[in-house]
Amino acid sequence: MDTALTHLGEMPVEVFLKDYWQKKPLLIRNAFPGFVSPLSGEELAGMALEEAIESRLVLEHGEDGPWELRQGPFTEEDFLALPRSHWTLLVQAVDQWVSEIADLKRRFRFLPEWRLDDVMISYAADGGSVGPHFDYYDVFLLQAEGKRLWHQGPKATDSSPRLEGTPLNILKEFEPENSWLLEPGDMLYLPPQYSHWGIAEGPCTTISVGFRAPSAKHILEDLAAEVALHLPDHLRYTDAGLERADNPAEIDPAAVRRLQEQLRTLLEQPLQIAQWFGAVMTEAKYPDIVAMDAGDAADWREQLLQGATLMLNPASRCAFSREPGTLFVDGEALPVDEGFAVQFCAARTISAQDLDDYPEIARESGLIDTLVAQGTLIYPPEDF
């Protein structure tokens, strides 16, 4: 069943996508009516004790100076030693560990799922924040518990002055253009690069749903390497039809245009780019967590026939393309039946019925064996 939001508050999703997505901020009052946080601050702190979970503490008035950053995992003693106010705990990828948060993330499937990143949750003591800053990606900030005052400023860039003496990218200059007090169920949407500063008014919890946005630098570096890998050595720079040069030492505009056209031809390979893009956008953010489950479902054939199911590891990512039928999982492009790819990405499970409908996935060293061996397919944990 598709649980994706159809409205953001009273606004239809189509209006949001047309007028706000990647264009301008939007405050959505009562986006989740009657919202009750799936996690308390105490439970979030408990997660920060685990070595496999990425967590951070930000202290506005730290022992080593202002805006001190501490990396987890933490101990109970670390939390007991914290001041009464002006600190924030941040825990990444909570959707990989808590089923209720994974369900919440699915509400945002009105956007391409392969664009969704992880869900971060922050707990802040009174006055706690991470300072004025900006992100390079879209983010929805859902107030889960307590109240937080959000200040939204202008767009910022790499050249915007930063505060020195802290590893955090805190803006040195920040002038609010809008300010809103958010209560549980309220949500703030911010497009990339809009500066913002959230300050807790009493203890509070905020859920951040972020999106993947690879940089142009990363795209060009990675794509160029992928395209070059498949190019034969005989393809070279050519200049047939060359005219007599006015100055033989000059690299003239015609030569540059000729090179641009040749590069454009090499990049106009939709299939190859689609395969690369699907792999890049499904790379696991925490591959070590996926690898922890490698081979745990090695007896899957017998178990599925007895009524068990396999599910996509919560730390894994998947997407598909239709022409040709390809399943992208954890950075790999796997050729499969289009119908199976569509079904699996929607259900994220495999049952005995799938073996009847798509017997090729059950072959020895086939799709299921491959995904089980790398930890991508697992038996459902008790809390999922």
Rank of each mutant, 00 (worst) to 15 (best):
F134E: 04
D239M: 13
I251G: 10
V139I: 06
C204K: 03
L235W: 11
T206G: 06
P161A: 01
A225K: 15
R244H: 12
F211K: 03
I251V: 15
L223C: 08
I170M: 08
A240E: 15
I219N: 08
D233P: 08
G198F: 04
L235A: 09
E164C: 10
D252E: 14
N178Y: 13
F140L: 05
E243Q: 14
T205S: 02
K155H: 08
A124W: 01
G202I: 02
E113K: 11
Y189I: 09
S208L: 00
Q152I: 15
E164L: 13
M187E: 04
S129Y: 08
G153A: 04
D246Q: 11
L141Q: 04
P192Q: 06
M187H: 04
P112W: 07
L223S: 04
W150C: 05
E183K: 11
A254P: 15
L220W: 12
D118G: 06
H234G: 12
S208P: 05
K155F: 09
P167S: 09
Q143P: 00
G128Q: 00
P176N: 03
L142C: 00
A213C: 12
T205K: 00
G185N: 05
P253D: 03
A216E: 15
G165R: 10
A156L: 08
P161F: 02
R162K: 10
L231T: 09
P161T: 04
P176D: 06
A254F: 14
M187G: 05
P167L: 11
L181V: 10
V256T: 09
R236M: 10
L190I: 04
E113A: 06
E250S: 13
W197I: 05
A245T: 02
T238A: 10
G241F: 12
S215N: 01
E243W: 13
E173K: 06
H196K: 06
G146Q: 00
K147D: 01
P214C: 00
P167A: 10
R258K: 14
A240Q: 15
R162H: 07
G198N: 06
S129D: 05
D233E: 15
A124K: 03
Y137N: 01
R162Q: 03
A225G: 11
D186A: 07
T205N: 04
T205C: 03
N247D: 14
M187C: 09
P232L: 10
A156M: 08
L181Q: 07
Q193G: 07
E183R: 08
T205V: 05
P191H: 02
V256K: 13
C204Q: 01
G241A: 09
R148E: 04
F140G: 02
H218S: 13
M187W: 09
A245H: 14
M120F: 00
L168W: 13
R258F: 08
P132T: 06
Y237H: 12
A124N: 03
Y194T: 07
L149P: 12
F134D: 03
A216R: 15
D246T: 10
P203E: 02
H151K: 15
P192L: 02
A200E: 00
R258Y: 10
D158L: 14
G185L: 04
A144V: 02
G185Q: 09
G241S: 10
P248M: 05
E145Q: 05
G153C: 08
A228K: 15
L141R: 03
A255T: 13
W114N: 07
N247R: 10
E221R: 08
